[in-house]
Each structure stands twice: as C-alpha cells, then as structure tokens.
C-alpha cells in the first residue's frame, strides 16, 4: 500500500514457547512522530528488529516506504536509521571515529549529513577524541542518535532511547526529536514511560505482543468513558484499602499524589467522603479527575487478563 512510511500487517514472532508478537498491525504515516508505548517484554524490540530488517517474522509482512523488509532489505537499510535499545557504538573508538565509521558504512561523508546532526552533535564537538565508552549516559545517547542520522535516513527507528535516563535529559531528548520531526523525518519511538506518549502525534499501546489500541493521545484519553475521581486522605494506604471494597468502586490505584478511583453511576463522592471520615480517616477529599494514557493502559490491561 502506498502512503505509509511503515506498514506492519499481522506480524507474529515466537522464540521457542514465548510469543513475542501476536498478530501486530499498524501504520506509521510519513512525517509523523509515532510512539510505541508499552512495558518491558511487551514485544517492542522484536518489532523494531523486524522493521529494521534484522530478523524475519514467523508470519505477516512489513513494508517500509512501500518496500518489503524481507525481499528489499538492502534498499530499506538506506532509508532507515536505527538506534537499538542497548548502547550500539564501538566503545574503544573515539567520538569522531564512531561517526566516521557509520558514515562510511552508508557510503557517505560526515560533512554531507552534518547539518542534520549539528544541533545534537554540537555538545560532543568539544571532545572528538574521547572514547565512546568513556562518555556519560546522556552523551552516549546523543552520539548514538548522531550515528543513526548521519546518512540522512527518511525514517528514524528509536527503541527505548530514554530508558534509565533522568527526567531532565529525557525532556532534552524529546526536544531534539521534535526538531528532527520538523525536518520531515518520520520517527517511530518506543518507550515504557507513559508520560512521553503525549509528545507523539499518534501512539500504539502494546502489551504481551498485542496492540491494545492505536490513535492520537487525545482521542485515546477521550475514549476513557468511566467516572474517574482523585481521592486523598491523611493515610493514603488505609484510604486505598477502604476504597477498594467500597460500593460502586470498580477500581482504585495510586496516581502520583492522589489515588484514582474508577466508579460506576451508583458512586456518590460526597456520601463516600462522609462514610470514610466516619470510619476514622482524616482529611478525606474525593473530586472529579481527568484520566490519562496510564489510566487507559491500566483499563485495557484489565480487559486482557
């Protein structure tokens, strides 16, 4: 099919008895920032390896820019830039050597791709002769991204680029991705941080090898149609135990500074506040809440099991 940057159709992949991918289908549109959101073991890296032509699916097909990843793998490799989950550079080569090596693999010069990587690479220019293995985590990540971009790929595949990275560096990394997106590069990025979902144009939620849902973050959040409340009290753990068995409450879980209460029509927050206070809880507050991707993920996981 034309019009898709990446088209995944009914892809399955097993390793022995473990089913890593179970009939996965998705379309990534040209120029979009597409997020693959799911926990460790969901199947994200397996899907990346298949799209990156490094592994065959057991069933199903994948096309990149209309090219089949199995039969046209050489052409596909020129189109994509792939940054695997694990640090993928040569630790004993210097910053400059790594960049030159990856450029030479694709038969291009560092100069020809330099303007694209300049905003990312500029902080590394201060130490071109430092070995990649001696860089800090944030710097390794910037070098790996530069190496994945040096041949000017149209499609960038990023597998969990922000895992284990602190909140400040994570947000800097997403700023870099936003800049790349304005250059027309299609980005498929995976993450286990649900809060990063809202930075994508569209996302697919993946769990146990299956896609739970695909849409824009806003539309997915809007699909949460239950009544949702924020609840807090002096003793949050006691509040959690009490609300779990409370009439009308279908689910209750921690959510940052508050609890989220999923409830049916019979639940009256005012009456519940009074009842919980009467049971000895202090400072009880139950107010309407807005859900987010994490609420949706919890709900969809519940449907699965």
């Amino acid at each position: 099919m034309s019009g898709c940057a990446i088209q995944v159709r009914d892809v399955s992949k097993s390793y022995g008895s473990v089913k890593a991918l179970d009939g996965v289908s998705l379309d990534v549109r040209p120029g979009e920032m597409f997020g693959l959101i799911g926990p460790d073991g969901a199947g994200k890296s397996s899907l990346y390896r298949i799209v990156a032509t490094l592994q065959h699916p057991d069933a199903g097909s994948v096309a990149v820019d209309g090219l089949d990843v199995a039969s046209a793998y050489r052409q596909v490799r020129d189109i994509i830039g792939y940054m695997p989950e694990r640090f993928s550079l040569y630790p004993y080569l210097t910053v400059r050597e790594n960049l030159e090596f990856f450029a030479s693999l694709f038969g291009v010069s560092v100069q020809s791709g330099y303007d694209l990587i300049a905003p990312i690479f500029s902080q590394l220019e201060r130490f071109p002769d430092r070995r990649a293995g001696a860089l800090s985590g944030g710097m390794k990540q910037k070098l790996a991204l530069s190496c994945a971009l040096i041949h000017r790929p149209r499609i960038l595949l990023l597998d969990e680029p922000t895992t284990g990275v602190d909140a400040v560096s994570r947000s800097e990394f997403w700023d870099m991705l936003a800049t790349l997106r304005t250059q027309g590069i299609t980005i498929m990025v995976s993450t286990s941080y649900m809060d990063e979902a809202r930075l994508c144009d569209r996302i697919a939620l993946i769990h146990n090898g299956r896609i739970l849902d695909t849409d824009t973050p806003a539309r997915l959040v809007a699909s949460l149609d239950e009544r949702l409340f924020d609840a807090s009290a002096g003793d949050m753990y006691a509040l959690l135990s009490q609300l779990r068995g409370y009439p009308g409450v279908t689910d209750c879980y921690t959510f940052g500074a508050t609890l989220h209460v999923v409830a049916d029509a019979s639940f009256d927050p005012v009456a519940a506040t009074a009842a919980l206070t009467a049971r000895g809880l202090s400072c009880v507050s139950i107010t309407p809440a807005h859900g987010d991707i994490e609420d949706l993920f919890i709900k969809l996981m519940g449907h699965e099991s």
Binding site: P39, D40, S192, Y237, Y253, T254, F297, I298, M301
Partner: peptide, 20 residues
C-alpha cells in the same frame, strides 16, 4: 530503581508492597 520498564499496573502493585 526497582520499577524501571515495568507496566503501570505492576508498578502500582509493587508500591503497595512498599507501603505495607
């Protein structure tokens, strides 16, 4: 970092163990 990469439901169950 006991909960890195863990799904949102498991992460929460883990924190309930911590609370207890």
């Amino acid at each position: 970092e006991p909960t890195g990469g863990v799904d949102p439901l498991t992460r929460r169950k883990f924190w309930e163990l911590i609370y207890r």
